[in-house]
Amino acid sequence: MNSILLYALAGVGLFTLGLYALIVHAHLLRKILAINVMGSGVFLVLVSLGGRTPGASPDPVPHAMVITGIVVAVSATALALALMLRVQAKTGQTLLPEERLE
């Protein structure tokens, strides 16, 4: 197994881990972090597969995509955190209603 495949598989692993956390955890901050872990996994897959021909210089296009992706992820996280604070201010809880323990 070469190192590139290892990185790509690690990316898929992070994605799966994030997905699991997103479903299992009720706290909104954990959900937002889980989404970020999933995003990092996808970025890792993109960047590592960019170097798929051994010896040659890596393909720059996936790197450009990842930079765009990071910009999107940062803005989405900012919006999510702001929304989370508003939800907490209004309901007193950082949970979605369906996950509240009665």
Partner: peptide
Amino acid sequence: LTAAMRYL
């Protein structure tokens, strides 16, 4: 707000 959070 909770609907928006879930939607996001």
